[in-house]
Design a binder for these strands. Structure first.
Lengths: 215, 215, 215, 215
DNA sequence: AATGAATGAGTCTTCATTCAT
DNA sequence: CATGAATGAAGACTCATTCAT
């Protein structure tokens, strides 16, 4: 299990090259403020100050506050979804001998890293998408094009290899996604009840998914 | 598996008796508007209109807009958390012969019903709790006092009965909670990818949790 | 010098007989609240509560908040101005031998008593009259009909008796009124700088008015 | 006795240099509206309009309406209290031969000018200070540090010079302050009864204070 | 291009006043 | 007559957005 980058800025710096320095600063500030307070509670004035630019400049780049929210989508794609796509293709040249257990652990740990790296960004986009249908559609589209296929491909391969019982791919996909989501959300929201301990918990999670809890 | 009531109003009507009719109307309107638009985007004027009262009346009952949000907690407790407590106690007189499979299916279906019944209420409270620490603490406290103990008790009993492998209660609890949450959230957010079909999916979910996916 | 009544309520109880008990309670409450907070900052709800009646009842007696202010004028007349008129007439049967010094001391002490007794009432009416021309005219009329004549009559008598130099009655009137007002206001507003000690200060005041400060 | 400037704006223009033009306009408007209607009855919208700025701009400079009231204190200090301090020091090099009569006339006429010049400003601040303890304390402090010492110094010097009888400085101070206040207030409130005629009245006032009214 | 002062539409909130009970 | 819940007009204040410099 690899060490997780915790400096979000590094991630976002990987933004498209046609994004000016000032724009980057603004977006980083936006993520920081908005993920802390939520979109509506974030003040353009505060974001501008945090970014070290004037409010006028902020509105030069993003004429509407909402644009600032939508502008976070490309960085999210770049830093969250792109790696998944990349992996989908790179995986094909990966050792075929990888066991199911290894595959699952790899899946959880890499996805968890991505979630951690993009915590703030994801928080805003996902929470706001609940009220912005356009944003929600974008997320749905992205997931449908990246995460789900990558996941289903893995499952299908494992079914083909007869490592997994013959069962609905969707069901397995749902089980895995639920565990990933659940682990991430529950340990964030109820850290006392569900403390986070990735190595240990991923191991147990995978074990149960593979063998069940029944004695 | 029983049919789920979808009329949220019916649920909320079960509120404490010392809540006047007008107050109920206001709370129902608040839930409707706020769960659709979020707390900050909801206008007190719109809530008042939806409730069929003047804005003055609204502020007579809830002097601050925020009070309207906090006022939703008691109804949530009454209609979401109370049933869980009730069940915790009634369960003791339940047939001891209930199998593990039945227990799990019962757990998922009853909790799912509660989630469905309190969709709007839960949506506002949980989403807003992300930015209101006081609200978040309330939710944490409630879960710690109701849902978690109920769940852990069931798991411990099953471990004692040797139906479940000897393993961490927390881990099993997390697995079950993740599946419940995951099923609910994923089918809400990605209905195309993960269509909802409670009977069938709960069955498969329980089967996998019991026996794993490994062939 | 007599002891000053400090219980304002007693004074107001002397209101016209065609004023019902409830009305009295309301007026007393109005004086208390308004003299503490000022007219605009006083809430009809608070006055009603203080009076022990419902807001509906308050508005039955005084349909507009402003009516409550204007309703304070009759009590003020009764308890502040009436005594002055009464004295004007009763004085005629007073001992003719009264010295100038005694007259002045009597003037200051009786007027001061009246000011003290009607502190709250006067405070509201005078302060509000500054912004309500109609109220101001009432006060001007009342002073012109009671206080000023009473004062000028005394001065003229003393001039006739050749106890006072031949000088403008208005000027002497102004001097005396200024001293009365000044003593009252300054010791209220700057109690540290000008502590109140009626017997001593009235004595010195009268002495200076009579003989001047020049050595 | 010099002619009094009646254009309040000129006075206020003397404000601190770090007060922008727009701020000055707002303060002047605030004085005009508030001294006419009182603090609570003044509408921020009206003040903004009178100042020729938007309401947003008004709140940019003074985030709370109350700040607008408190902001009037510095100008008051500058234009009312500062001159008194200045005079206190400049006076020491004044001709020692100045007679008591001249001193008193000078005192009344200069103080009266200051009162006239700052009529509006003083009216608001003093009337509002009656209900705002913090404001009242400011005024008390200012008076204690400027007006009272200046006055008492003069009195003590005159006592030392044996121009004034040996008597309590406070008493004389009170007499003079009362006359000043009384003259100002009475001729404002009862212009018919006490018409204003500064030269003549100051002369008579001083004469009586010096020699008394006794024949 | 960048700034930040200025704007004003839009919100929450208050409170005198009304009115059904 | 009394009550107090209900009203809604009006006011303080916020903040995204504009624009002169």
């Amino acid at each position: 299990m690899e060490i997780v980058k915790t400096v979000e800025e590094e991630t976002i710096i990987n933004m498209d090259d046609n994004v000016s320095d000032k724009e980057k600063k603004i977006l980083i500030a936006a993520i920081r403020i908005m993920s802390e307070k939520g979109f509506r509670a974030s003040r353009t004035s505060e974001i501008a100050k945090e970014a070290g630019v004037s409010e006028g400049t902020l509105f030069r780049y993003y004429p509407k506050k909402k644009d600032l929210l939508l502008a976070l989508l490309p960085p999210l794609i770049l830093s969250f979804f792109q790696p998944i796509i990349t992996e989908m293709f790179s995986k094909s040249n990966a050792p075929k001998s990888s066991t199911l257990k290894y595959e699952l652990k790899h899946f959880f740990s890499t996805r968890l890293s991505l979630l951690d790296d993009n915590k703030g960004l994801l928080k805003i986009i996902i929470l706001e998408s609940i009220y912005y249908p356009e944003l929600q559609k974008s997320i749905q589209k992205l997931m449908t094009e990246t995460v789900f296929p990558s996941l289903e491909q893995m499952i299908m391969e494992q079914i083909e290899k007869k490592h997994i019982k013959k069962m609905s791919v969707t069901t397995v996909s749902r089980i895995l996604m639920s565990q990933l989501l659940g682990y991430f959300i529950l340990s964030s929201y109820f850290p006392d009840q569900y403390p986070r301990d990735d190595d240990k918990e991923i191991n147990e999670m995978v074990d149960i998914i593979l063998n069940g809890i029944k004695r």
